[in-house]
Amino acid sequence: MLSGEFIAFIGLALVAIMGGVLLLNLTKVVHMVVALVFTFVSIAGIYVLLSAEFLAAVQILIYSGAITIIMLFGIMLTKHNDESEAKGIGWRKILLFLGVLAFGAAVYIGIYDLDFTSETSSLHVKNTEQIGLALYSDYIIPFELTSVVLLVTLVGAIILARKDDNGKEGDKE
């Protein structure tokens, strides 16, 4: 008998895979990025099924919000000729497809009958509070290091994307 959880999983997985296939097959770049938003939102639904509600919220905020918008900025700031994809199917793409297929089959052999003795987890009870307690007790040093990484990213992105008006200063670095 199909349970509601299984039906929800099937629907979310179908939407996620459909977004990925559309990413590979569409021709316009903006359409590809918008197709991938469907994948990101369904992955957030998968997180809810796996009792990770805080991660689902983070996924929607970061991926469907921030990363999609930053990719759209990258597309709008550069110029694209949409018909630049190679016409026809080259032997290189066939070899690549076969390689990826072989990789997928090899991993699938390892996971298709994987099952653990499932003990009941209590992850869904006060999920955000559990994450906060773990972050500020066990993982406090990686948490602070992440803030340093984000600061370095901010400074580095500004320096890299700056227009090089006075190139003499740039040469000294």
Binding site: S3, F9, I17, G104, Y108
Partner: peptide, 15 residues
């Protein structure tokens, strides 16, 4: 009753 663990792993593999 619930979704097997290999289904989630297979979805991740496809993506």
């Amino acid at each position: 009753s619930n979704v097997p663990v290999s289904a989630f792993l297979a979805l991740a593999l496809i993506l």
